[in-house]
């Protein structure tokens, strides 16, 4: 595959390199998912379709003020704004705990 593309991808993935094996698999998977390009058989009524199911509904994610405020409160404890949509604050919690423990040790 194009060497520049692989360099660009390794940068986007934040990995030091993309192995030859992975490069081959990548090409194969791309051909596999490319099937969607040939599908254009959308029926006309579909354009008017207003989806209300939970998966795609924007309403569900935006209208629950209480949950939103609670989530905001949780986010306040995060150290970096980028984390605000993470469902699981994994290591930060642990780090905070370690910091608290270290703090306690210092007091002792």
């Amino acid at each position: 595959m194009d060497e520049n593309l692989m360099k660009k991808l390794s940068f986007l993935c934040r990995v030091s390199k993309i192995d030859k094996n992975l490069e081959n698999d990548f090409e194969m998977i791309l051909n596999f998912v490319n099937k969607i390009s040939n599908f254009n058989d959308f029926n006309t009524d579909f354009e008017k379709f207003d989806d209300k199911t939970p998966v795609l509904s924007k309403k569900l994610r935006e209208d629950d003020n209480k949950n939103f405020i609670e989530s905001k409160n949780i986010i306040k404890n995060f150290s970096n704004e980028e984390d605000q949509f993470c469902v699981v604050p994994i290591v930060i919690e642990k780090e905070k705990l370690n910091e608290e423990n270290n703090e306690e040790e210092r007091h002792i």
Binding site: L9, L12, C13, V15, I18, L22, D25, F26, I29, L30
Partner: peptide
């Protein structure tokens, strides 16, 4: 690695 490569692409 395979999946994040495809995802980023």
């Amino acid at each position: 690695l395979r999946r994040i490569t495809i995802g980023n692409y």
